[in-house]
């Protein structure tokens, strides 16, 4: 027999549409309706056992409400806090919604930035998640490898540990402003395509099951394989065998990324 956990009436399970605006609306509604959420979940996500017999409350995303919360974040926490919370939202951490919610409760209570209140668990959690995100974004800046296709598009399949393309792509927009390129997240099956204007989201029907992400010669530009070979040669030549240190090598280039790295093919 499952023991019914006693909860106050205003302690609820909330469901939202999975967007950041949706989450900010959830926070807004919690204040307006004086709700204390014990769980915030994306619509359609499998319910957790403990609460399976309770009816969750669905929050409808509202742009105006979300904007008011966003304005409050910037007002009290500054742009850094705003950016950090968005990163937490993208972190794919199982508790990300509750972390953002609890952090905002605290921020709005203190009415000033709380980034350095490390003695509070939720603040520490945010700082750790932001660090994780930063590391993964930096890895994408480093490990993306473009292959030039026959039509001149530069294409890079990649599989980040976390969904960081929304944060990592600006770097490429600035750097490769004069190129057409696409970075494709295989794990989450979407990519970002840039052809000069705003970046577009694309979904491709392609097979990426191979041991390496080297694309077949027939889709590549005439010189692509030659440049890949040159890069591999360079990578080998620039190594100093007397200093071999594979442990260090692996720490910097974890083997799960190898199939995306031209020099490792």
């Amino acid at each position: 027999m499952v023991v019914q956990k006693t909860t106050a009436v205003d302690e609820v399970q909330l469901v939202y549409d999975g967007t950041y605006e949706g989450l900010l609306t959830v926070v807004f509604e919690c204040y307006r309706l004086k709700l204390t959420p014990i769980e915030i979940q994306v619509q359609g996500a499998p319910a957790k056992d403990l609460f399976a017999n309770r009816q969750p409350l669905t929050i409808t995303t509202d742009k105006t409400s979300a904007e008011r919360v966003a304005a409050g974040i910037t007002k009290y926490g500054g742009r850094q806090t705003a950016s950090e919370l968005y990163q937490v939202f993208l972190s794919e951490n199982g508790q990300r919604e509750m972390i953002v919610y609890q952090y905002l409760r605290l921020l709005f209570e203190k009415q000033k930035a709380i980034n350095a209140h490390y003695h509070i668990d939720v603040v520490l959690q945010v700082s750790q998640l932001v660090k994780q995100m930063g590391r993964e974004i930096h890895r994408m800046h480093a490990f993306v490898r473009f292959q030039e296709l026959a039509d001149g598009l530069y294409f890079a399949p990649i599989e980040p540990d976390i969904d960081v393309l929304p944060l990592a792509h600006q770097h490429f927009v600035k750097r490769y402003a004069a190129m057409r390129w696409c970075i494709y997240d295989i794990k989450r099956n979407y990519g970002l395509l840039y052809e000069g204007g705003p970046v577009q989201t694309v979904v491709l029907d392609m097979d990426f099951s191979g041991n390496t992400m080297q694309l077949p010669a027939e889709v590549l530009s005439a010189n692509e394989l030659a440049y890949q070979q040159l890069w591999k040669d360079y990578f080998k030549s620039t190594n100093i065998t007397e200093r071999k240190n594979l442990k260090l090598h692996l720490r910097h280039v974890p083997s799960r990324y190898w199939k995306y790295l031209t020099e490792k093919w």
Binding site: H141, H171, R175, K244, N245, L248, H249, H252, V253
Partner: peptide, 19 residues
């Protein structure tokens, strides 16, 4: 219309087997 930029922190794109 240009190619590239520099980031003040720099980026290591790979690491040789000597680390």
């Amino acid at each position: 219309g240009g190619m590239g930029n520099s980031t003040s922190m720099g980026i290591c794109h790979s690491y040789t087997e000597d680390g």
